Computed example of a mutant assay.
Amino acid sequence: IRTLSVLRGGSSSATGDHQYLPISLPDTFKERTEDVHVALLSVLHASRVTRHLQPIGSSDIQTLSKKDASPVTVGDFASQAVALHTIHNTFANSDMYIAEEGSDALRNDEELLEKVWGAVNHVHTGDLNSEEELLKAIDYGQGIGEEDQSLVTKRRVWVLDPIDGTKGFLRGREFGGQYCIALALIEDGEPVVSVLGCPNLPLPSTESTKAIPYGAWSENEVKNDAATGSSNGLFSSSRGCLFVAVRGGGSYEIPLHILEKYLLEQSPLESASANLPWKRLHVTANDGTAKAKHEATFCLGVERGFSDPKGTVLKIAQVIHGPDALIVDEDGIKDIKNSIRMDGQGKYGLLARGDAEYFLRLPKDGYIDWIWDVAAGYLCLKEAGGKMS
Rank of each mutant, 00 (worst) to 15 (best):
G197P: 09
T166W: 05
P204Y: 08
A211I: 00
Y179R: 12
E34V: 14
P255H: 03
P199G: 12
I333V: 15
V36E: 07
L134A: 01
V319N: 14
R280W: 00
N93P: 01
P268L: 06
T228V: 12
L264H: 10
P202C: 12
D225W: 14
H52A: 12
L40A: 00
T166F: 03
I212A: 15
V38C: 15
G172D: 10
K30N: 13
L234W: 01
W278H: 04
S194L: 07
S273N: 06
G385F: 05
V49W: 04
N129P: 04
K293T: 05
L259F: 00
S42H: 08
A216W: 03
N286C: 11
Y367R: 05
H85E: 07
R304D: 08
R239W: 04
L64K: 04
L40T: 12
T90K: 05
D27M: 13
T15G: 15
G377Y: 03
A92P: 05
K291N: 08
I144K: 03
V193T: 07
N89L: 01
E146N: 07
I327N: 15
K347H: 14
Y140K: 00
V43H: 11
I212D: 14
L360E: 02
E383W: 13
S231A: 12
P363N: 05
L170G: 02
L201P: 11
K364M: 06
A81L: 09
N224C: 04
G250D: 06
C198I: 00
N275E: 09
D373N: 15
I368Q: 14
H257L: 03
G301L: 00
L234P: 09
E303K: 07
N89S: 12
Y252M: 04
F306C: 04
G75A: 11
K136H: 03
L264M: 10
L381Q: 12
H282E: 06
F169Q: 11
R48W: 04
R51Y: 10
K136M: 02
A184M: 13
I1K: 04
G288Q: 06
L196I: 08
R107G: 03
G75M: 09
L350Y: 14
R171M: 13
L360P: 01
A317H: 11
S237F: 08
A227G: 01
N338Q: 15
A356M: 10
K315H: 10
T153I: 10
K66Y: 05
A81V: 10
V302T: 10
Q266C: 08
E111S: 06
K334M: 13
E219G: 14
E147Y: 03
S70F: 07
V49G: 00
K30S: 14
R156W: 02
S236T: 15
E219A: 14
L4F: 11
D287S: 06
M342R: 03
V246H: 07
T28C: 13
V302K: 11
R247I: 09
I1P: 09
G386C: 11
D308Q: 02
A184G: 08
L40C: 07
A69D: 13
I144P: 00
Q62R: 15
S251N: 02
G75F: 03
L360Q: 05
F306E: 00
Q54V: 14
E131K: 12
